[in-house]
Amino acid sequence: MGSETRAEFGGSAEQSRLVGPVLERFRNVRRIAVLRGGGLGDLMFALPAVEALRATYPEAAITLLGTPLSAALLKDRPGPISRAEILPYAEGVRPGVPDAAAVEEFFTGMVREKFDLAVQLHGGGRNSNPFLLRLEARHTVGSRTADAAALERTIPYVYYQHEVFRALEVVGLAGAEPQSLEPRLEVTPEETAAATERLGGTAPLVGIHPGATDPRRRWPASSFAAVAALAAGDGSRVVVVGDDGDAAAADEIVRLALASAPGTDIRSLAGKLSLGELTGVLEACAVLVGNDSGPRHLAQAVGTPTVGIYWIGNVINAGALGRTLHRVHLSWVTVCPVCGVDVTQVGWTAERCEHDDSLVHAVRPADVYEDVRELTATSLLLRGR
């Protein structure tokens, strides 16, 4: 390891056998803050890193600085995170109209916590590193682009890297060795009971989630409907899930699927489930089919097999690592189908074009259903049914 890299890391390093260098642990760490905003998937990507911190600093209280969604999901849930604090609206940290008074109130309260270690798992650091530094923690670690503020120990932010590995490399700077490479989330008995009441029935349950934050990551409703019809025709129950924004697509999927498989059990619960109920429903599924989206990542975290529809760039950053329980179907499109602009640089070094046409529309429903069928059987075997 060269002298420049050692200086960047801020100390000597031992090479981890799993991912990245692991540096010397900090001493007397009793309070840890972890900055990770974003959606459900972003939180799931951070969980293995938080597990590593918990194992390394077992006496420390770990506070997640996140979104209302994260706070709601983690409330009263067993796991490595002690509590969640909701971030104020701030540029590049939590989207919304910034409120200077709320930001100052947030930092006043957080500085009083006297964090020993603050961990930045929120991107390249242009906005998140200055935000983290305002916590006034004794030690800081994170990733950074060349133009981002420096922390005590940093790794370079390289866009095309799996987010789980990126987060694990960051906490390795604090001496934390990986405990797992996949997110894990414990489902509560109340969530399981709520899902059972919602769902009824005993046939295998195939879940479908048609949403994604970026519309270019969305597989067409007609393709999801074809999979739903095939699953229902083979005797499975099918449930489409999502938030209010997914309800129209979910209704279209149900309509098209029932037209192909009349009299079967295909329905939508999109926009009708609380976050806890969604968690329980995802656990109840034999398999979930979805785009690169939060519910797919949440399903994986609660132990449900998944079939994901991915654009090739997204699978690098967010695809499931294993293939025994998780399958991915890739679109190899590299240019916008409308204007021809190179989409492989979007979010990294180039501005996004204005077109929202799907980059994954060419993925074939018959191929997806083959994995659904196989994983349904695998899931039932693992669950002793």
Rank of each mutant, 00 (worst) to 15 (best):
A195R: 05
A259G: 11
Y310K: 08
W348R: 14
I81S: 00
R153F: 13
G20D: 02
R112C: 07
E51Q: 11
V281C: 11
A228E: 07
A270Y: 09
G322K: 09
R184Y: 01
L65T: 00
G125S: 03
G280R: 12
L205S: 09
N127Y: 10
R134E: 13
V171D: 14
S12T: 08
Q345R: 15
R352P: 05
L282N: 04
A167Y: 09
H326D: 15
K75I: 00
R31W: 05
G125N: 04
Q345P: 03
H162D: 07
A84N: 01
A362C: 05
S82H: 06
G319R: 04
I309M: 07
S260I: 00
P189S: 07
P295N: 10
V22T: 14
V240R: 10
H139Y: 14
I253G: 02
A247G: 02
G280W: 10
E59K: 00
L117E: 00
L278E: 09
L43T: 10
G201P: 11
A46R: 01
E351P: 00
G384I: 00
N129F: 03
P337V: 15
L40T: 12
A301Y: 11
S236I: 12
L87M: 14
R166V: 11
G322A: 14
L275C: 02
D367Y: 06
L282D: 08
A226K: 10
I312K: 10
D116H: 04
A231H: 12
G79Y: 10
E197L: 08
P68A: 06
A46E: 02
A137C: 08
E370C: 00
S16T: 07
L185M: 12
Q300R: 15
Y89P: 04
H122Y: 05
D99K: 15
E8A: 10
R385W: 12
G124L: 05
I266G: 13
A146E: 11
R144V: 07
L65C: 03
V335H: 15
R36F: 10
A146D: 11
G172H: 12
K114Q: 13
R237Y: 08
T349E: 07
A248D: 08
E190T: 07
A46I: 04
V171T: 12
Y57S: 07
R138Q: 12
L64E: 02
G37I: 06
A174D: 12
E59Y: 00
S12W: 14
R25N: 13
F9M: 07
G172E: 09
P337N: 13
G233V: 03
V227R: 07
V372S: 06
L380W: 13
W311I: 01
S82Q: 03
L73S: 04
